[in-house]
């Protein structure tokens, strides 16, 4: 299991390759990448991601450990960035490796559902007019946890 919290960009191809190389015995690898999308209104120029140093790493480690105990995974990876990101930049990735694909898919969804609502990150949209707005948590994201 590897947990990385950093402001610098990460190399998706290199991280995926490294994870695959280390996933001995796995028959399935699932990766998910989160990207800063265009705002629905089209005025967003960047996104500031704030986090809680210390708690962030602890929370991600505990979420990944829970995934490893619930599913028959051989490994899991979470990379999450903070700081100022622009449209199109990669925010985060998760990867899971398992003997079989169902476990890898389910565990990746579990990791995403939990890190959205239980890892201490907060997003602020920086708008073209110089305004900024904190992104509100969605009820759907909280509801998504009940399926696990």
């Amino acid at each position: 299991m590897r947990i990385v919290v950093q402001d610098a960009p990460f190399d998706l191809a290199a991280e995926t390759e490294r994870f695959a190389q280390g996933a001995a015995g796995a028959g399935a690898i699932v990766t998910f990448t989160g990207v800063v999308r265009e705002a629905d209104t089209g005025t967003m120029t960047a996104m500031d991601i704030e986090h809680y140093p210390g708690m962030t790493e602890k929370a991600l480690t505990s979420i990944a450990a829970e995934a490893l105990s619930r599913w028959d995974l051989t490994d899991a990876l979470v990379i999450h960035r903070f700081g100022r990101l622009h449209t199109g930049e990669q925010i985060m990735m998760v990867a899971t490796a398992a003997r079989h694909r169902v476990a890898a898919f389910e565990a990746a969804e579990y990791l995403m559902d939990y890190l959205k609502s239980r890892a201490p990150f907060w997003k602020k949209e920086i708008l073209a007019e110089g305004d900024a707005a904190w992104v509100a948590a969605k009820d759907d994201d909280e509801a998504a946890l009940t399926r696990w």
Binding site: L115, A119, P120, W122
Partner: peptide, 10 residues
């Protein structure tokens, strides 16, 4: 002790 709004990671 830390106070914050609901988290919005991912």
């Amino acid at each position: 002790v830390a106070f914050f709004p609901p988290m919005t990671g991912g």
